[in-house]
Amino acid sequence: MTRAAASPRLAAHGVGHAYALRTVLAGIDFDLPAGRVAALVGPSGCGKTTLLHLVAGLLPLREGRIESDFATPACVFQQPRLLPWKSALHNIAFGLKAQGVARRERERRAHELGLRVGLAAEDLEKFPHQLSGGMQSRVALARALVMAPDLLLLDEPFSALDVGLKAELYALLAEHLAGRGMAVLMITHDLMEAVRLSDDVLVMAPDPGRIVARFELARPAASRDDAFVYHRTAELLQHAVVRESFGLPPLPAACTTPDGAAAGGLRVVARGGHPPPAHRGLQC
């Protein structure tokens, strides 16, 4: 209890997972303390979503350990996943209702947050099918944020939105994260999204899914401008380990940034190895 009170954290040790005989995750280790934003990036099918489901407790953990001291985790999924028979307001209040918050109180909080994520008061009365895709994403985000979670799990929630909407929701999220001590684990295949929002970028590679590198971004998310994001993303893309993970052809030797050459805030902190031989045998 005392440890949790001091500084809650999420830690994974040697987490692995297999669907039937196909190993999708092997030897995953990471540590996420309160107040930090970690992004898991990797190509499609590298087991990112499986890892998030394990963390959220939606899949039984078979291999390794996941320790979490966070009391109120909240998820935002790839699709908005709104209940079609409930108004936007009641969709936002869904998690609060599950917690047993009284009707009036949860509707007040849902209303307040709905307005803050940019929904109009009359939109809150509408059913999901009457809302645009961007509005639905806002509702889904509000549904998670209204619970004042201490751990936020994001599964590519913005991947289906256009750049303008994305930028708006990034700003919204960044504003919400600032000074709140909330830990965030987000999944994305968009490096720029990772660089814009996160403090740690964990690069994953497929077959089996494993973390092959960790980068730290020193500048706080609130003070990152577009130029910073473009530069760091380009820089990230020049790392051999990142290129290999996404299946990009290697750059000519002269162009690659040597590991550890910290050109203004992007630092390789760790490089994961290859999967242990035992898992190699299971690949098909």
Partner: peptide, 23 residues
């Protein structure tokens, strides 16, 4: 997907039945 959502938000069974399945 909605069943998963209910699991992720730790929705108790009576509410799961009334709000997610019944409609």
């Amino acid at each position: 997907q909605l069943a998963e959502l209910a699991a992720a938000y730790r929705v108790p069974l009576p509410m799961r039945l009334a709000d997610v399945y019944l409609p």
